[in-house]
Design a protein around this nucleic acid. Sequence first.
DNA 1: GGCTCCAATACCTTGTTGGCAACGACGGAA
DNA 2: TTCCGTCGTTGCCAACAAGGTATTGGAGCC
Lengths: 89, 89
Amino acid sequence: MSLTQIEYFVAVAEEGHVGRASRRMHVSQPPMSRQIRALEDELGVTLFDRTPRGMVLRDEGRRFLARARRVLEELHEARREARDPAAED
Amino acid sequence: MSLTQIEYFVAVAEEGHVGRASRRMHVSQPPMSRQIRALEDELGVTLFDRTPRGMVLRDEGRRFLARARRVLEELHEARREARDPAAED
DNA sequence: GGCTCCAATACCTTGTTGGCAACGACGGAA
DNA sequence: TTCCGTCGTTGCCAACAAGGTATTGGAGCC
């Protein structure tokens, strides 16, 4: 699992479309699609239902989304603190 | 920044030596040494003092260590939840 | 000075990621 | 039912990043 995968996952979950999420993240669809699948493979869980209209979060995906966001939040705080030592959480 | 860098950083901080940390993480010293420096470069902060006895955490490193651990904890929880939906935080 | 123990650098190899092109599945319109 | 548009996925290749071995450089110790 990588931070990139987590960021891609959150983007797809929020956009509901790989294509839209990929534009938002400034990458093309294929890499994003592959990373999402790689993430699912590693977790052993299907996070989205694929429909002709886009990607629909499953319950498993919804739960993982909450966790994924917390990882990114902590990462953000870590970066911020390094830049600005006066940070008080 | 990558999860690998964060894991390497925590290992070095805990071991106090790149060499010992690299053995613990089952990699060789050079990659770990490089990742630590890359992390410092990206953050724009020197996390360790290099001494002939090993790596000594600076204050900046100590603060970042706390944050880094939280990132890894959240990551762990994310993984666990995906595997075991019955998890209750 | 020579030895030991560190981390850092040089150089190469391998693995991973991303882009482009093409395909497959599904639904809507005529 | 046929055609078209909208999705995500797969194949293939190029670029980048990560890891390994060998080597260098610096600081203490005898």
